[in-house]
Design a protein around this nucleic acid. Sequence first.
DNA 1: CCAATATTTAAGAAAATGTCAAGATAAATT
DNA 2: AATTTATCTTGACATTTTCTTAAATATTGG
Lengths: 114, 114
Amino acid sequence: MEEQWQCDEFCVHNHVLDRLQKTPLPEEKIQQTAELFKVLGDNTRIKVLYYLLQDELCVCDLTVLVGSTQSAVSHQLRVLRNLRIVQGRKEGKQVFYSICNENVRQLLREILAI
Amino acid sequence: MEEQWQCDEFCVHNHVLDRLQKTPLPEEKIQQTAELFKVLGDNTRIKVLYYLLQDELCVCDLTVLVGSTQSAVSHQLRVLRNLRIVQGRKEGKQVFYSICNENVRQLLREILAI
DNA sequence: CCAATATTTAAGAAAATGTCAAGATAAATT
DNA sequence: AATTTATCTTGACATTTTCTTAAATATTGG
């Protein structure tokens, strides 16, 4: 028999599966959660958020702080903006960024033990 | 002037930078944090962890629950094992997995609002 | 209009994911 | 005890995704 692999009834613990399958995580929730973590799973973005945790900062300052290029930082800021983790405030020629998601702020505080 | 781009003294807010640069996040901590989030930033692994949050499960059960192949699940379990988020317990032909990192367990509980 | 700052686009490099096939181990069968 | 079967792991490959860099394109202020 060359059918697609699958556990047979001797392996699977049906009573457990039956129970767990009654409360699956909604696909949307899975997607949402994974995406949040994905965005937080990057060295540059962690650095950016670490500094924003302490102050509202312009792209220029962030560029110096994370030791990257302006373009790269701007790129990461857009990613964070898309997930509504940070927001920008325009002042003159500059844009000041800050964390606008309190859950993420709290999460980072705990993880980074600040 | 065609040198590498860099903010000049009119853009950068030196007093802020000076202060923030005194307490940089250690590279190791950044790496560690980003890696944890990176591992959590994947649909399959979120599903696996969601189910492990509720029960110790064998690879076979997990395969059915996440609706993937045994091989793919095993690969992901290794990733989670490498970061000491889950651990395997051998029992006969089967391996039962469970979450062995209480911080991650707590984090997921909060994020998934369980 | 010019200079400074910020964003977007495009392209190339690096990394992760799933699939398939092979290997390993423990139990069951002969 | 040798063979087969069930469960799980591993390695190699192809595909896709993600990150970075560089260049082009706004936008703003003077």
